[in-house]
Design a protein around this nucleic acid. Sequence first.
DNA 1: TTGATATATCGAGATTTATCAATATGTTTG
DNA 2: CAAACATATTGATAAATCTCGATATATCAA
Lengths: 84, 84
Amino acid sequence: MRLKILNWLRRPEDHFPPHNVVKHFNDGVCATYIQEKTNLSQSTISTYLSMMEKCGLLISTRHGKWSYFKRNEKLIAQYANTLK
Amino acid sequence: MRLKILNWLRRPEDHFPPHNVVKHFNDGVCATYIQEKTNLSQSTISTYLSMMEKCGLLISTRHGKWSYFKRNEKLIAQYANTLK
DNA sequence: TTGATATATCGAGATTTATCAATATGTTTG
DNA sequence: CAAACATATTGATAAATCTCGATATATCAA
């Protein structure tokens, strides 16, 4: 599921509805949208996203009550390279 | 540990002693050497290696009583690419 | 300030994984 | 063939992971 999330976040506009307040995906996608798309519980997604941030795979930005998550391309590229 | 094994098998001559009967690494490295290097039990390594073969990550060749394992570069490249 | 909404944390159960010892099977060699 | 050696399979346990519901915390909006 976390790999899927990483994939969706490559091009958020292809996988998520537009945000209502922040009118772009510059900081990624809000946790709620990700939760809805995965059908996992809110607590699970919250944990996943913060784990992934701690790992360096994601970058999170808080805008008011929402947390947005986007890929940390630099780190992801490094991971992928290590594996390769 | 399995990632380590995959790494060692990139250049067996850098990580394993030479084979006594089969005088090359053309088919990879025998299970015993891998087991010794990992310090995992024989049964664990046997299971790991056959899992990895089933996954397509390794190719195994039996020469007499020995089983040799080498990387399946084609499949590995595909995996790495998918992840990337 | 309060209620509503978004996210975070905690504690727990079910499932999966890592790993072993014991044993079985296969292969060579004297 | 029998002993010796290499590998495979089985059954088991401890640890890790997945995932949840309940609850806590943070933030906005009226």
